[in-house]
Design a protein around this nucleic acid. Structure first.
Length: 262
DNA sequence: CGCTTTTGACCGGCGC
DNA sequence: GCGCCGGTCAAAAGCG
């Protein structure tokens, strides 16, 4: 019994650690996103000012309205990628995401040994939604589903409005209905090239996205992160929140186990 | 019998 | 222009 409790506690600690790492990464990413957004706004402002200036001078040909609008609001939608965890020996590329799909093709691609399956939504005859499904090259227990196009019909009844429509980036494992051969959905980021299973590897991917290769010295990366005021602020907030959360969780655990408070 | 899956052929875009 | 490659088509096979 004691052993069981011990292993469970260890497991809990491990999960907490991973959770903290992920939370930190999320904080860093969101702070960087905010920074990028403000930077983009600045650039737009500058471009606008320049445009006004050039219009006044009349020497430089300005972009027409549609082109400028396109520059200011880059609306080109990237296809959404969703990662599903499955059994490595499970060769089926069928994902229960709430919609009814009809397979219309399969191809072996150059960059991946496992075949890529092409599906079309069969719930409405005119529905333009499509998806490509392929096993991850790095980890065969991960299925990568790339959604293309939007459904022009209502969401299936048994699924909530937020659970399966690949419009945003909010699909998480808990929102999927429990099914016997459920595949756990993990939506990380459509830009990450290939999927990595551990948080360490996610870190590496994030680092790559930030322009750091796998070969870079970790100290160098940490140093640059520390210099980033946004990062330090986010880090401080995250640590403070983590401490509060952990204290709360410990209290809850003690209450549940009828243990005296520390 | 009707729907789905499989699979080889075909097409178009892209790089050289 | 040619070859490669990803995406799609469509006939045949499979399945309930």
């Amino acid at each position: 019994m004691d052993e069981k409790v011990e292993t469970l506690q260890k497991e809990l600690q491990h999960v907490r650690k991973e959770n903290n790492t992920l939370r930190l990464m999320l904080e860093v990413l969101s702070s960087k996103c905010t920074k990028l957004e403000s930077h983009l706004q600045e650039i737009n402002k500058k471009a606008e000012q320049k445009g006004i200036l050039s219009n006044q001078v009349g020497s430089v040909p300005s972009l027409d309205a549609s082109k400028r609008a396109r520059l200011e609001f880059p609306t080109a939608k990237k296809p959404l990628q969703i990662f599903f965890r499955t059994h490595p020996n499970d060769d089926s590329l069928i994902i229960k995401d709430g919609y009814q799909w009809r397979k219309y093709g399969q191809k072996v691609t150059k960059d991946n040994d496992s075949p890529r399956a092409y599906f079309r939504c069969s719930m409405a005859p005119s529905c333009p939604a499509k998806k490509k499904v392929q096993k991850c090259i790095h980890d065969r227990s991960i299925i990568v589903a790339t959604y293309d196009g939007e459904h022009n019909h209502s969401v299936p009844h048994e699924f909530g409005p937020s659970s399966s429509t690949p419009k945003g980036s909010s699909i998480i494992a808990n929102e999927l209905p429990p099914t016997p051969n459920e595949k756990e959905a993990i939506n990380i980021d459509s830009d990450i090239p290939g999927w990595a299973q551990t948080s360490t590897e996610i870190c590496e991917n994030v680092m790559q996205q930030c322009g750091y290769g796998r070969h870079i010295n970790i100290e160098e990366y940490v140093g640059s992160l520390i210099k980033d005021p946004d990062f330090t602020t986010a880090l401080a907030e995250a640590v403070a929140r983590t401490i509060t959360d952990q204290h709360k969780q410990q209290q809850d655990l003690n209450l549940n186990l009828d243990l005296p408070e520390e």
